[in-house]
Design a protein around this nucleic acid. Structure first.
Lengths: 202, 202
DNA sequence: GTCTATAATTTGATAGAC
DNA sequence: GTCTATCAAATTATAGAC
């Protein structure tokens, strides 16, 4: 692994756990096994470094989903598999959602500019279209809009990872119970969302 | 307003917008119209100050709900009103959820110790009990546990406020459209959750 | 209680040798 | 490319006058 890769790995870990303001360049250099000077040789500044890290993670967090929602599966199969796969991915990478959300709160403009330049497409566009098509075919019977649906889906999938500690407190459960609950959610969330689409609007 | 109150108000604003690591004692002193020395006279340290701020906000964010869920209304009315009132509260105080979540991620132990000392009860206990009672009376027919239900409810209510910027990007909408969507959610989220409780388990 | 002045430390970043 | 040494600025916190 090159020094540059080691730096990126160490920086990712530091930013994921401490956030931009809490992260320390010194700490990143130490973890990467190099000195501070070299950090600034490869990455001009702390800001430039986190932009790079954010960009990779944002791609990662949404690319998995794109594959599924662009597949040939039926809408309901896409949703079921998409949610299962995604929650499993989040169990393996639990800190990404809070980091991404926090960075966009801290400096939306800088990140969006960079993503625009790199032509990262906004996720879920494809899913939204599939839902509207299924609605025309009467497979979707509720009056939930695709936008509302996607927001509900994101909320149910991502919130437990963003607010892990808060949930463990309000529900008075420990790590083990929490993780068991997460695994259950794979089926449970898909079921809830699909029912919402299928139930007839009144 | 006393100097101490002015400090607390300024500190709340600073911590809500910048978080612990991003907040500056100098900035708080300026906003409060006092000097830095006085900050440390009233509050020993930055840490002590944020503990105080967190504690008040955490109480605030959950006390509204407790009133409703301890009322004499029927379960489904409690849920409907609780969600409506709460989302409206969040529209008025949109930064609280991200702050609370972030602080618990940063230093769970310190905050929990303080809340235990102050005997702040974990929220939603009452709601959980009501659901289980309604299940015995066959008013709740699904196999969704009360824990799962509460987690779904928190996710659907809080996530849009935690991840506001991310949602606006992924959905490609502006402030106005986002806020219209939030208002819609009052009814829409309640409807979805209640349906989940009423639908028969298969 | 409220202020000024300053201590003590830490931070991100740069200069320059090799 | 990689390192050492160091700068300049900013931070929290304290001491002490009034």
């Amino acid at each position: 692994m090159s020094k540059e890769e080691k730096i990126l790995e160490a920086a990712t870990d530091e930013f994921l756990t401490k956030g931009y303001d809490g992260a320390r360049m010194r700490s990143i250099a130490e973890s990467a096994g190099i000195n501070k000077g070299l950090l600034h040789y490869y990455f001009k500044s702390k800001e430039a470094l986190i932009l790079k890290v954010f960009h990779s993670l944002f791609r990662e967090i949404f690319s998995e989903l794109s594959d599924i929602f662009n597949s040939e599966l039926s809408l309901f199969e896409q949703i079921e598999r998409g949610i299962g796969t995604y929650i499993e991915f989040l169990i393996q990478n639990p800190r990404i959602p809070f980091f991404v959300v926090g960075e966009l709160n801290r400096d939306k403009k800088a990140h969006l500019r960079r993503m625009k330049e790199a032509k990262v497409p906004p996720p879920f566009m494809e899913l939204g279209r599939s839902i509207e098509e299924a609605r025309k075919r009467k497979e979707v019977k509720s009056d939930t809009t695709s936008r509302e649906f996607i927001l509900n889906m994101m909320s149910l999938m991502l919130f437990p990872f963003v607010a892990r500690e808060m949930i463990m407190f309000t529900q008075q459960i420990n790590e083990k119970e929490f993780e068991a609950m997460l695994r259950n959610r794979k089926k449970q969330v898909a079921q809830l969302l699909i029912m919402d689409l299928k139930v007839k609007a009144k």
